[in-house]
């Protein structure tokens, strides 16, 4: 019995911790937002971050997008074949990619690549007093470090999602039409018929929200790092965990709102 209570206690604590973190991250967001409104954007720093978050993530996004589309096509084929509806494979892949898997997988990959790096870099800056040095030089670190990363992520995660959507559909096309010999005309026609532009747009809006979440969490965790090298490691791990969970949870609510 005691063990059970302890387990419930631990579970409750971790939920509390998560909710508290969300609250602090929201406050952090407000202060980043106020800097975005108050002062001109550091365009050079934004471009630098766009390169890091966006351009350098293209390769992983192409790979994950392509293979996800391919496996969906394969699974869809096995399923639909049972009631002779192979013609729907193309549209299923396209809808799945644009509405759901494109934005979510892209955001998770960028979290792992760039969100973790933000936490590690800012965390190291924090423990080596570089963030204090910015304050001392009357240069606000939120403006210099946080705003460019958040803006770059909001812009680049949707851009990467477009790449991922496209590659997913191409992968699905390759497996469905070239390997499994589904009729090409029907495959494409159903995509045209069943996938609307708003499916794509809504997916991109989601992606922008995910970009905001992953960059905010990464920056917040880095910014509040304490305790040397160990602290940087802890901040990086927590950033990836919190951002991934938040992306998946917010995905449900965004979907419920949009579709």
């Amino acid at each position: 019995m005691n063990r059970l209570i302890q387990a419930i206690d631990r579970f409750g604590r971790s939920i509390l911790w998560y909710v508290e973190e969300m609250g602090r991250i929201s406050l952090f967001f407000i202060s980043a937002l106020s800097w975005l409104v108050r002062s001109p954007l550091k365009v050079r720093l934004v471009f630098k971050q766009m390169e890091f978050v966006g351009v350098k993530s293209i390769f992983v996004v192409v790979l994950t997008g392509t293979f996800t589309g391919m496996v969906m096509s394969l699974q869809g084929y096995y399923g639909f074949r049972l009631f002779s509806a192979e013609s729907l494979v193309g549209s299923t892949v396209a809808l799945g990619m644009t509405r759901e898997l494109g934005p979510v997988l892209t955001a998770l990959m960028v979290t792992a690549r760039a969100g973790s790096a933000m936490a590690a870099e800012l965390g190291t800056m924090k423990v080596t007093e570089q963030i204090d040095a910015l304050y001392v030089m009357a240069a606000n670190p939120i403006r210099h470090l946080i705003v460019p990363r958040v803006v770059a992520s909001i812009a680049m995660v949707p851009a990467l999602t477009i790449v991922s959507d496209f590659m997913g559909i191409m992968g699905g096309y390759f497996v469905g039409v070239k390997l499994l010999k589904i009729n090409e005309g029907i495959f494409l026609k159903n995509i045209y018929k069943l996938v609307g532009l708003d499916d794509i747009y809504n997916g991109l809006i989601k992606a922008a929200c995910f970009g905001l979440i992953l960059s905010l969490v990464g920056c917040y965790k880095g910014f509040t790092t304490y305790g040397g090298a160990e602290g940087v490691g802890r901040a990086t791990t927590e950033a990836v965990v919190i951002a991934s969970i938040s992306i998946l949870i917010s995905d449900y609510f965004l979907t419920a709102l949009m579709f």
């Binding site: 870099e121 080596t128 007093e129 570089q130 204090d132 304050y135 001392v136 009357a138 606000n140």
Partner: peptide, 29 residues
């Protein structure tokens, strides 16, 4: 921030920005 412009500070480990070279560090303020 206005008052801080009267100050300079040398940190214990110097706290140079390690993403910038020496010139950009000194030029920063």
């Amino acid at each position: 921030n206005e008052t801080r412009k009267k100050f300079g500070m040398l940190f214990q480990e110097a706290a140079l920005f390690d993403s910038m070279n020496v010139e950009d560090n000194v030029a920063f303020p």
